[in-house]
Amino acid sequence: MNIFRLAGDMTHLLSIVVLLLKIRTTKSCAGISLKTQELYVIVFITRYLDLFTRYVSFYNTAMKLVFIGTSVAIVWYMRLHKVVKQTYSRDEDTFKHYLLIPPCFILALLIPLEFTVTEILWSFSIYLEAVAILPQLLLLQRSSNIDNLTGSYVFLLGAYRALYIVNWVYRFFTETHKIRWIPWISGLVQTALYADFFYYYIKSWKNHEKLRLPA
């Protein structure tokens, strides 16, 4: 464990805490894409299949349970909670997210880490996570005003993978000296997708103005 990866995990955890805070305190999920949240449930489940078969550390197991549990809870809130589900921006959250699944799965079959079920699903989850934010970014472009908690959520979510990239560079030079194409390229694509959001988020933060994404 290095400081960059710990910072990455904590940033990821914080993004989920911010999202749950928004949903629970405002009893609203306006501006949040249910499709992105559903993709994250798939990402975590397909990535953590070894949850019960391989024990890495208490921290690793605990975080996996937290990520799976919270992502399922968020989808539950947005789909089933009697108050919150009314606030879901259904007619703006229109990205056909199911179209992202077949290409990621085919790519995982073509370029798996190893040709075993768990490694193919693990590669699938890495590829899917890279594009899972797309429905959310599209929804932000359509939202007239993005509330602070939603903006912070997306910012932290993007920042966590950027910190992971630093962690990979650090590990390459200090530990493994191995090139890990799958997570590295996916992580770079994932972080690049946030590029314009980061630009407008930091600009709005500097100028103390409301965050707005150009349509």
Binding site: H12, R54, N60, L113, T176, P183
Partner: peptide, 10 residues
């Protein structure tokens, strides 16, 4: 093998 060092990350 390669898979082991991948798997201690989340």
């Amino acid at each position: 093998t390669v898979t082991t060092d991948l798997k201690d990350e989340l």
